[in-house]
Design a protein around this nucleic acid. Sequence first.
DNA 1: CTAAATGCAAAGCATTTGCAAATAT
DNA 2: ATATTTGCAAATGCTTTGCATTTAG
Lengths: 135, 135
Amino acid sequence: MTTSIDLLKSYNLTVTPQRLEIVNVLSSYGHLNVDKLYALLKSTFPSISLATVYKNINTMIEKNFLSEVKLQNQKNVYELAKETHSHIMCIECEEILDISIDISSFFKEVTTKSNYNLTSSNIVFNGVCQKCQLL
Amino acid sequence: MTTSIDLLKSYNLTVTPQRLEIVNVLSSYGHLNVDKLYALLKSTFPSISLATVYKNINTMIEKNFLSEVKLQNQKNVYELAKETHSHIMCIECEEILDISIDISSFFKEVTTKSNYNLTSSNIVFNGVCQKCQLL
DNA sequence: CTAAATGCAAAGCATTTGCAAATAT
DNA sequence: ATATTTGCAAATGCTTTGCATTTAG
């Protein structure tokens, strides 16, 4: 079993209580924007600074520990880095899901059509989740 | 032949010289961020205000005349709205290409897996363009 | 003991707003 | 004639920076 401590260390990140809590809340909530992350951290560390949150997000992204997801009409959200995957956002309740779809055929098609040497992709689907469809 | 004037009118946008020039530069350049758009407009309208550029971008997006593309490590860019398509960005020279790929099979797969009622998608591939591969 | 992170306040950008004058319909 | 847009300046908001103090390794 990998602890959050080991996880941070494996990405060359100094372990601090604030960072451990970032790992905690991100693993519970999945995707959070800066403000929500800050609000959640505040409940554990009342004196935490927004600057600390920003600094941590930035270093964690640099070290590929976090990834940033850009959404339509929404602030960017952050998640613990994992294997390549896509996202679906509900345009009503803003819920965000991870989804694994095999995009290798796209990669091939796009490579052929464009002659680009592809390195990554950002794929977000927008729609209405089941819960919101019933409202 | 549809003039830029008719085009703006068809989207219920008041026609002004500044807006016509926005259409011009976007149709020549394809994708522009706020600053580049402002710089280009300045050469035709030296006294144009950045605020005007922002206001126009916002109303044009509201009326679905423009669309906004969010890129990794880059400022958002704007393009004249067209049929659904994806983008490829060169991570070296920042060139952006439109690319049409048939994503209907994905839509189906994602719908089935998520039970979301999908309305749109934002798909950006990142890579190195052919020119930059040779440098 | 040295390097890195934290928290605060200030600085720096990006974007929006309010308003008077100009322009579009 | 009325409604909208423009351009300016000010205001707002978001993110980063500098620095003294604290904490991690």
